[in-house]
Amino acid sequence: MEHGKHVFRIVILVAVILAVVLLARGFLVPRTYGLYGRYRGANVAQQMDARPVLYAGAAACADCHSDEATKRAAGAHKNVNCEVCHAPLGAHILADGSVVKPPVDRSFTLCARCHRKVAARPAGFPQVDLEQHVNGPVEGKVCLECHDPHSPKP
């Protein structure tokens, strides 16, 4: 009987631990954990709505700016999304419907990002040795004074 008492104590202790573990698990494990796998299932839908869509694509810009869109689609920049130079549509038409004038970077750096002569660019891609092109330092020069970015000519 003396030994039976020891076993009884252990059984009670294990039962208490079990209850504590179950209780803690109920509080600590997220409700949708394990719904699809070893993660919180509700997060999938949260990721879908994590943030607003900013980049809408050139087709969306053409809804209002058909002149520029037509011109661009016929030229060498036909595959260049408007938002590459003009910032995303989501920063132009805000969520509340208000319109903000998009930034137009008129500095040479905008054009240089794609067209400055860099050895790593594909050989067939149009590149310009900027200093040679303007016969001197390129800082302060404005490519857009001669080149139309919506329908560029070499």
Binding site: Y55, V84, C114, P122
Partner: peptide
Amino acid sequence: TKCIGCGSCARACKAE
């Protein structure tokens, strides 16, 4: 072979 290293992707990613 098509990448021109303009960085538009990285800028768009940062904004989006």
